[in-house]
Design a binder for these strands. Structure first.
Lengths: 108, 108
DNA sequence: TTGTCTTATTGCAATATTACGATAATGATT
DNA sequence: AATCATTATCGTAATATTGCAATAAGACAA
């Protein structure tokens, strides 16, 4: 098959899965880390920072944008990418229950 | 291709990506949520809780186990699955820099 | 042992992902 | 207008993922 049965799950579960899936590739992790350490969002330089071809990086940026984890603003003839705080807050918030659960003693 | 170039990235980036990828499916999100709300880890009941065939759920459990996010202990003729606190702490820790970065004003 | 219950594995078919070269599209510069 | 710089898209080949029925493998009970 290869087709995820999203209908069987809640919108929240699908959204959390979409966030996680977007982060589920080392290149996209590297992009997020890069954007997390930039005071200002240097943009075209993402391509230089990621050891993959420009077309491939552009594809990864598109996936992060589709998931909502980053946003891009046109700035002259280049594009300024940066993190989307709202989505990241939601991502964090959805992970909280599990993060707090692991503080308790586990059964096995 | 379809083959992720892990060699180009750090071990940490690959590990974070592996965690995220494991969580990147609504069924696996549902499994984690289920284990996060259980006082004791009821185990075979995961299959009943997830609206997919037993074989498919078993496959998802295997992926979560491979990523280290859950662990399974044999208990009689059934298996007790629960969250792996160590890995979840590492997962959380690796996301922290981004979570804190979004608290600052963004550029675009 | 035989049967039952529980979980894993195998073997598919359908679809998705990854990567890159080539090319297009857009804005800036000359 | 012509060119350059930057980013997106297309086309492609290779590989991965998803889902399930069927089957296997394990522990326990009678």
């Amino acid at each position: 098959m290869g087709l995820t049965k999203t209908d069987n799950f809640t919108a929240e579960q699908n959204e959390l899965a979409a966030f996680a899936k977007a982060l589920g590739h080392p290149a996209r992790v590297a992009i997020i880390e890069y954007l997390s350490t930039q005071a200002s969002c240097v943009c075209g330089s993402i391509v230089d920072a990621i050891p993959l071809a420009q077309a491939t990086v552009s594809q990864h940026l598109k996936e992060l944008k589709n998931a909502g984890l980053i946003q891009g603003n046109i700035e002259g003839n280049s594009i300024c990418y940066c993190l989307n705080p709202e989505k990241w807050k939601k991502f964090k918030q959805m992970l909280e229950p599990t993060f707090t659960h692991i503080e308790q003693p586990v059964c096995c």
